[in-house]
Nucleic acid binder design. Structure first.
Length: 465
DNA sequence: GCATGATCATGC
DNA sequence: GCATGATCATGC
């Protein structure tokens, strides 16, 4: 029915035909399929392939339009509170074949063969709508820029080397910069696979472009945001991503915050209470050579967050790191794999440590860190414990005479990695509970968040020395 | 003294 | 008005 609408051997013809989708839903574009009962069930990508492009979805190792070397991918955008649209999820590409990859090179890999050129269809996801009614916002072909490709190629090699050294079960999303090895399939036993150089079963994983990277693709196809890059293409030949960036910070090691400020010509307002956190972020941006009002391209693409930590004179770290407060109602609806929490913690962090020295702090060390697969499993465990507590409605343990409310959420001692603490303006700053508390019948509870234990941060601090 | 709960300050 | 980073207060 769609024959002759485009030339499947020509990139430009396919793109031209795909572009017609912009501003419309599949129902608009394909009309008659709306009455098909099947069409109300399929997911967006399947419907797009079958009814608009007119081919059956497949799992070939070749690209979807193999003559044109073009792989079709659709991906949802979700609206933020401020009205802006952002990518909702990572872009999942082909499955990682643990048994084959040790014998592949990047350039002849199944990954590169299939995904060299992506035809991307961004659609506006809305909870209440059927896939047929999602409006297609933007269509474009993505050719990886050389600079990105260098990073992606290294990511691919890192994933390969973990598998080659019998560590497929230890793969973790945060290991890599732009290209991830994301879990694919259910978390149940059956999604475990054999790996070639170890008897341990490993979770099935697929190559994926991180959500943050996909977001910058969307923005650059749209031409909407300006980024400042910190690594040139030639620099990338001189070392790993991590090393290159830490090397840029190194000249400032052992200088006091004040000295760095005067060296960089940064205004200082010591009296402001969040002086430290704001000044530290500004310092790192300036050291990396990025103007303050712009985003760091590589950090945005890789979703790298800067964490500035103060170290006591005796080498201890007092502060736990807070994560954004969660909504009780949202958390119980989430599966770990598509949870906001996992999304927040699975990428890399740039830790910058400032050591207290007499009355001032000096920049002591810096380095990248990401949670290991074991850490991710531990977070998943604590996440699920928390979820069950909210679901059971057994939240409050007791209330002291002074009105201090003790709860049953996981505590510092319950995990080496994370605990739950209030994160609110005051006790009355609450979110509603999906199940009223059994003891007090209250329907709301003080906002809480996951915190990363200071002892874990201390461990990072020692590891980066 | 430390763990836990409560609250503050700032900036968007 | 809220998110975020930081710090204070209470009680074991």
């Amino acid at each position: 029915m769609i024959e002759n609408k485009y030339d499947s051997s020509s990139k430009s013809s396919i793109l031209e035909y795909a572009k017609i989708l912009e501003g419309k839903s599949l129902k608009d574009s394909c009309g008659d399929i709306a009455i098909s009962s099947r069409a109300n069930k399929g997911n967006f990508g399947t419907l797009l392939e079958e009814f608009y492009f007119g081919y059956k979805p497949n799992s070939n190792s070749e690209a979807d339009f193999y003559e044109a070397e073009l792989e079709l991918k659709s991906t949802p955008l979700r609206r933020l509170k401020n009205g802006e649209w952002v990518c909702k999820e990572r872009l999942v590409l082909n499955i990682i074949n643990y048994l084959d990859i040790p014998y592949e090179d990047f350039m002849n890999s199944s990954f590169w063969k299939k995904n060299k050129n992506l035809l991307l269809v961004f659609y506006l996801w809305e909870r209440e709508l059927l896939p047929l009614d999602y409006v297609i916002d933007l269509v474009g072909i993505w050719d990886f820029p050389q600079k990105d490709l260098k990073i992606i190629q290294r990511d691919w090699n890192l994933i390969k080397s973990k598998i080659t050294s019998g560590q497929a079960h230890l793969l973790s999303e945060g290991d890599t910069i732009y290209l991830g090895a994301c879990t694919k399939g259910s978390t149940s036993e059956k999604s475990f696979r054999k790996q070639p150089f170890s008897d341990e079963l490993a979770k099935q994983r697929a190559f994926s472009l991180k959500r943050s990277y996909l977001n910058t693709i969307y923005n650059s196809l749209n031409g909407s945001i300006e980024y400042d890059s910190i690594l040139s293409e030639s620099e990338l030949d001189e070392g790993s991503f991590d090393d290159l960036i830490v090397r840029k910070i190194e000249p400032y090691f052992s200088l006091s915050v004040k000295d760095i400020q005067s060296r960089l010509g940064l205004e200082l307002n010591q009296h402001s209470k969040n002086y430290f956190s704001s000044i530290s972020n500004r310092i790192i941006k300036r050291i990396l050579g990025v103007s303050e009002e712009k985003f760091i391209e590589e950090f945005e693409k890789a979703s790298i967050t800067i964490k500035s930590i103060r170290v006591e004179e005796n080498g201890r770290i007092k502060e736990n790191i807070s994560l954004p407060a969660f909504k009780f109602e949202d958390l119980i609806e989430e599966d770990w794999n598509d949870s906001i929490l996992k999304d927040t913690i699975e990428n890399k962090f740039l830790f910058v440590f400032y050591k207290k020295n007499a009355e001032q702090h000096t920049l002591e060390r810096a380095g990248f860190w990401n949670l290991s697969s074991k850490d991710m499993d531990e977070f998943e465990r604590v996440f699920n414990v928390t979820k069950e507590i909210i679901k059971s409605g057994e939240i409050i343990r007791d209330i002291s005479e002074k009105g201090i409310v003790r709860n049953n959420f996981p505590k510092l001692k319950d995990s080496y990695l994370t605990h739950i603490r209030p994160h609110a303006t005051n006790r009355d700053d609450t979110y509603s509970l999906p199940v009223p508390d059994k003891k007090t019948k209250q329907k709301e509870f003080t906002k809480q968040s996951f915190w990363i234990n200071s002892s874990y941060v201390e461990m990072i601090y020692r590891a980066l020395s």
